[in-house]
Each structure stands twice: as structure tokens, then as C-alpha cells.
């Protein structure tokens, strides 16, 4: 079976620092694949390479068997790769609804003539945007400026926008970062719902520091240290892997 998303021998150096070193990663259809590792392990750089923001020095990326290594972020997004950012990426001075409308407009693959069409008075567009907010449970905040939303709600909004185009792959960069304990739990619950979307949820690559979130969601876990993959497998196997415990988990998770 062809993996949905595959990284083959991906490397990237920044000056003398080898941030990502020959990484192999297979993400199967519908799988939640967590990438964990200590700070500086190269997780975010790997996610950037998968998303098309960071050019790898070596290696190839495939989406459903199609080579996408040379494509930029926007092209990959149009092929069905959505992502969330470590620092919440929303337009602060637009309302939550307008942010969602933006995602709908982007997903329309609009050409320039279509772009002149009215946005604020288009019932189809408004309905699609409201539906996107409802899917993550923030429809009540539709008319609030996105910058004034609570941090957890901002992350939910960002997720709503990423889900609009029904992506095949969702790249998540620390979705619970900066949230309080309740907001974090809500986000985990939300991602679990996305995973079990009727008709099949997107494959997810989850870069996350919060190990509770990782063990609650992941089907498989890849552990990175100093740019390399040191372990990959189901959560239980990774939890008991002596190499991982030495490099990363430490005594806290004995």
C-alpha cells in the first residue's frame, strides 16, 4: 500500500548544523503519526520540509506516490496538504467568520475573474465558512475579531481553516502549545473527532511536546534526536524502547 505521505532520505543543514539528517517517514492513510523528540531534534524543520516551506538539501517527498519535492507550499496545499503553525496563523483584525471565509476562498482555487465577486454578501461562501466554524465548535464566536479570541479558540479557528479544503494530509505544529490544560484537552478531543470523521479523516503528522496529547492521539510515533530518527512504532513500543527512554523520555515517563 502506498503511504499517503512519504519522506525519503530527507536532509537539511543550516550552516554547520545538520537540522534534519536522512529522515525516512511513512504516514499511512488515516493515520495519526506523531513526531516527538527533545528541543532541537529537527521536528519543526522536518514539518517545514513536508509542507514545502523549507527546501531539503537532499531527499524526496511523495504525496500518494506523487513526487512533490519541488513544489511550493501553495501548490502542495492545492494538492491536499494543510497545516497549522506553531505560532497561530490567523488574520487578527478579521473576524473568525472572515478568516474561515478566507480559507473557503482559497479552497475555491479561484482564478482572478472569480476573485472580483462579492465575498461578504455571498450566501454559499458564508454558509461554508459557518459550517467550518461549527465543525470545531466556535460558531458562537463567528463575529468576534480573531485577535480577541481566547488562545484555545484561535487554535481551533486555525484548525477549522486548515480543514476547509478537506485535506488528505494535515500537518500540525504543536497544536496544544500555549493553551491552558482545559483548552489542551479540548484540542485533543477535537483532533480525535477529526481523525474519526465519517468517510475517513485526513492523515495527520503531529509535532507535539505534550506527551499526553501524543499518547492520546497517535497511531504511530517517530522519535527524533539530533536530526535523526531513533525509533518508530506504535505508542506502546516507543514508550518502552530503551533508546528512546535514554534520549528523550527520561525518568518522568518510566
Amino acid at each position: 500500500m502506498t503511504p499517503r505521505l512519504r519522506a525519503r532520505g530527507v536532509s537539511r543543514r543550516f550552516g554547520a548544523l545538520v537540522a534534519v539528517d536522512g529522515v525516512e517517514l511513512d504516514v499511512m492513510s488515516g493515520e495519526v503519526h506523531a513526531v516527538i523528540g527533545p528541543n532541537g531534534a529537527g521536528k519543526s524543520t522536518l514539518l517545514g520540509i513536508l509542507a514545502g516551506e523549507v527546501r531539503p538539501d537532499a531527499g524526496e517527498i511523495f504525496l500518494d506516490g506523487q513526487r512533490v519535492t519541488g513544489l511550493d507550499t501553495a501548490r502542495r496545499a492545492r494538492l491536499g496538504m494543510a497545516r497549522s503553525f506553531q505560532v497561530t496563523a490567523i488574520v487578527q483584525d478579521l473576524t473568525a467568520l472572515q478568516n474561515a471565509m478566507l480559507a473557503v476562498i482559497a479552497a475555491e482555487r479561484g482564478r482572478i475573474p472569480g476573485l472580483g465577486r462579492p465575498a461578504m454578501a455571498d450566501p454559499t461562501l458564508l454558509a461554508a465558512a459557518r459550517e467550518a466554524l461549527r465543525a470545531v465548535g466556535i460558531e458562537g464566536a463567528a463575529d468576534v475579531a480573531a485577535g480577541s479570541l481566547a488562545h484555545g479558540a484561535q487554535r481551533q479557528l486555525e484548525l477549522a481553516m486548515a480543514l476547509v479544503g478537506r485535506p488528505r494530509v494535515l500537518l500540525l505544529d504543536e497544536p496544544t502549545a500555549g493553551t491552558g490544560p482545559d483548552e489542551g484537552r479540548a484540542m485533543i478531543e477535537l483532533l480525535r473527532r477529526v481523525k474519526t470523521t465519517p468517510g475517513g479523516g485526513p492523515s495527520m503528522v503531529l509535532v507535539e511536546h505534550d506527551l499526553d496529547a501524543v499518547f492520546a492521539l497517535a497511531d504511530r510515533i517517530t522519535v527524533m534526536a539530533q536530526g535523526r530518527v531513533i525509533a518508530c512504532g506504535p505508542p506502546e513500543a516507543v514508550r518502552t524502547d530503551p533508546l528512546v527512554r535514554a534520549a528523550y523520555l527520561g525518568d518522568a515517563h518510566r
Partner: peptide
């Protein structure tokens, strides 16, 4: 809307496709 969003956060706009 795309112009306003592009002024505010170009990385995000590109990530949306």
C-alpha cells in the same frame, strides 16, 4: 479579502493554497 490577509500573514495565505 486575500489582499488584506496577504498583508497580515503571507505564510498563512500560502499554506491555504
Amino acid at each position: 479579502m486575500l489582499i488584506r490577509a496577504g498583508a497580515s500573514n503571507r505564510t498563512m495565505v500560502a499554506a491555504l493554497g
